[in-house]
Design a binder for these strands. Sequence first.
DNA 1: AATGAATGAGGTTTCATTCAT
DNA 2: GATGAATGAAACCTCATTCAT
Lengths: 215, 215, 215, 215
Amino acid sequence: MATRHTARPKVPRAVREPQMLDEALRVFAERGYHGASMADIAAGAGVTKPMVYAYFGSKDELYLHCIDHAAARLMAAFDIARDENETVEETMWRRILAYFRFVGDHRDEWLVVRGQAAATGGPFSERVAQARRRVVGLVVGQLEEAARPGTRRRDIEPLAEAIVGAGEALGDWWVEHPEESAEAMALREMNLIWMGLGGLLRGEYWTPPAVASSA
Amino acid sequence: MATRHTARPKVPRAVREPQMLDEALRVFAERGYHGASMADIAAGAGVTKPMVYAYFGSKDELYLHCIDHAAARLMAAFDIARDENETVEETMWRRILAYFRFVGDHRDEWLVVRGQAAATGGPFSERVAQARRRVVGLVVGQLEEAARPGTRRRDIEPLAEAIVGAGEALGDWWVEHPEESAEAMALREMNLIWMGLGGLLRGEYWTPPAVASSA
Amino acid sequence: MATRHTARPKVPRAVREPQMLDEALRVFAERGYHGASMADIAAGAGVTKPMVYAYFGSKDELYLHCIDHAAARLMAAFDIARDENETVEETMWRRILAYFRFVGDHRDEWLVVRGQAAATGGPFSERVAQARRRVVGLVVGQLEEAARPGTRRRDIEPLAEAIVGAGEALGDWWVEHPEESAEAMALREMNLIWMGLGGLLRGEYWTPPAVASSA
Amino acid sequence: MATRHTARPKVPRAVREPQMLDEALRVFAERGYHGASMADIAAGAGVTKPMVYAYFGSKDELYLHCIDHAAARLMAAFDIARDENETVEETMWRRILAYFRFVGDHRDEWLVVRGQAAATGGPFSERVAQARRRVVGLVVGQLEEAARPGTRRRDIEPLAEAIVGAGEALGDWWVEHPEESAEAMALREMNLIWMGLGGLLRGEYWTPPAVASSA
DNA sequence: AATGAATGAGGTTTCATTCAT
DNA sequence: GATGAATGAAACCTCATTCAT
C-alpha cells in the first residue's frame, strides 16, 4: 500500500517557477529582504518550502534572482532606442515616460531595484547597486552624448544619479497619490530636471512635443 | 543561583544613553531595522542587552528614538532662517549646503531619516515618513514662497519630493566617493535643480554668490 | 549557513501530537504554567521546540489545549447517566466513584483542571474556571434534582463548590497516600458529604448499595 | 563634593519590612510564585530591589517568609481555645466562623496558604504544605477529640483535609460573590460538613446556637 | 539606609534549511 | 515533482541578583 500524499499537481517547472518569482518579488518589495520569510513566499505561491529551495537554492539566491529579473525588465522598458531624427531632449522624454509607465505597471519589480533594497547590506547590496547602476548608466550615456565636449565623467555620473533619485522619490510619492497618471509624473520629472527651478519659477514650463508617444 | 560578575564600569546614564543611541544609529543605518540585532547594538556600546532594554524599552522604541533624534538634528541643521535681504535662490543654496554638510558629518543620522528606512514597513514606516515629510515640508515652504501665485500645492509637493530625492541619491553617491567636498555636492544639487539640464547642457552653470557662508 | 542534521525519526503527526500533549500535561501539572518551559516539554516529548510550535502555535495555545483536553476527558468520565430506578444517592455515589477513578488513572489531566491551575491568572484563569465550572455544574444539577422545591440556586451553587473542593482536597491527599484505593477515597467523600460529621461522629456510616458498580 | 542621590527617606527597618511583606503577599497571592517578579514587589512597596534583597535575602526566602507569616496569622485566628462547657459542635462553629472572617479580612494571606500555592512545586511546595498541614492539624485535633474511641488516624486525616478543602472552595466562590457575609459562608460550610447532604435534602438545617459570638 | 548601574542565564518565538518518503 | 517532519541557530525580551557609590 503506497503512501499517498494529498493530490500533487505536478505542475511543470516552466509554470511554477514564474509563480514563485512573482510572489517573491511581491514579498521582498513589500517587506524587504530581512522582513520576508521563505515560508511566506512559499505559501503565497501555493507551494511548500522545499519546492522553493529546489528551484532557487537559497534565500540569497532567490533574492539575487529577483534583483536580476527586475533589473532586466526595467532595463528592457527603459532602454528605448534613440531615433536618428530625435533631439536628446525628446529621447529623454520618451525614456522618462517609459520609466514611469513601468513603475505604474510593475511596482514590485521597480521597488526591488529602487534604492530601498540597497539598504539591506550584506552580499546583495552590491548586486542591487549594480542593477541600479545599469539604469543610471543609461542616463549617463544620454548625458554624455549631449554634453559639451570636455565634460568630465566625474561630473556626469552624480548628475545622472540625482536624476534617477528624483525619479525614485517621485515614484514613492506616486504610490501614495495613485490617481496621478504616468504622463503627469513623467512631466513633473522632465520639468524639474530639464528646466530647473530657475526656469519653473519664472513660469517657463517644459511641454512634450506635439506627436505623443503611443502606449 | 548566585551570580558573580566581573568589574563593571558603572557609567552614569547621562553618558551611557548617548553611547547606546550612537551605536544604535550606526547599526540601524548600516543594516536596517530587520538586519540590526539588539545584541550587536549592546555589544557595540560596550554593555549587555538588558541595559539597552532598561534605557530604551524595546527594539521598536529604540528605533523610533533613533528616527526622532536623527530627524530633530537634521531639521536643526537644515532649517536655516531666511535672511531678509536674501533671494530665494540664496536661501536655497545655504540650505542645500547645510544639508550636505550634515550628511557628511552625521551620515548615520542622515541614513536613518533617508528613504531607505521607510521600506521597513511596520509601525515606523509612518514615523520615518513623518520625519522625512518635515524635511520635504521645508522645501515646500520655500517653493511656495517663490512660486507664482496660483501654483497648486498638488504640483509643489512632488517637486519638493523630487528635489529631496535628488539630494538623497547624491548623498548615496557621495558615500562611495568620499573624496568630494560638501560644497561640491551641494553645487551639483543646486545646479541640477536650479538650472536644469536644459541650461547645463547649454553650458550655463549656477555659481554661489560671492560671499560664501562660513562653516 | 548549511545545517546538517542527525538522523530523525520522522514520526507522523497523528502520533507525535498526542505525545507532545501528554508531556505538556505532565509538565504543566507538575510545575504549573509559569514553571513549565517549552524546552522541557519539547525535550520530554523527544523533539525540539520548533516542532511544538509547529503543532500548537504558542505556549498559551498549548496550555489552553491541555485544559480543554483534560476537561473533556474528566467530564466524559464524570458525566454518568442517571439510571431511571436509581435514587439520587446512588447516582451520586457512582459519579464520585468515577471521579476518583479518573483522578487515580489520569492524575495529570485532573491536576490541570483542578483549582491549582486557576491561580495562574492571565488569559486562562477564565478558561480553567470555565472547565471547572462544568464539573461543578453537574453536581449542581444533581442537587437541584434532589433538593426540596424552593431551594435557591444561590444556596445550591456554593454547596456544589464545597463538595467539589472536598473532592479536590481528598485527591491531593491521595497523591501522598497512593496506597489507598479509588473506592476508599470515594467512600470517604460520600460519607462526609452525605452523612455529615454529625452522623459520622455518632457512628453512622454510609455504605454503598449491595450491587457494586462494574468497571 | 559628595555624590548626592535623590532624597532618601531613611525609613527604619521596622516600618519598611512590613510594607515589603504586605506587597509581597499581595503580588504572590495575585500572580503566584513564578508570575511575581521582585521588581514588581519592590516597586509596589516603594523601594528599590536591593532593599528587598537586603531585608529578605532572595526571592525564595521572601516567599517562605510570606508563607510562614500568613500561616501564623491564619493559625492565630483559627486556633480558638475550646471552652470547657462547650460542645465540639459549638467549638467547630466558632472556628469555622473565625476562619471565614479571616478569609474575608485578609484574603492575600489566606491565598498564600491555600492549596493554590502548593502547585508551585520546587522547594516550597513542602513549606506551603507544612503550613497548610497546621490548619488541617487543628481540625484533626478536634475530630479526634470527638470521635468514638478506636477511630483510626488514617481515617480522620483525610476527613479533615476534605473539610478544609471544602472551606477553600467556598472561599474561592466567595471571592466572586463578595456580597455574602462571613457568617453566611460559615453557615454553609457548617451545614454541609455537619449535617451532610442526607440531612440537608431532608430539610434538616444546622443553625448556630442562640448566643452569637461577637466580632 | 539606599540606589543606579550592570549582568548571566534563561524564556518564548521565528527562521532558513534539510531529510525521508 | 512534491511534501510533512524535523532541527540548529539566533532573535527579542525578562528576571533574579549584585556591586559601587
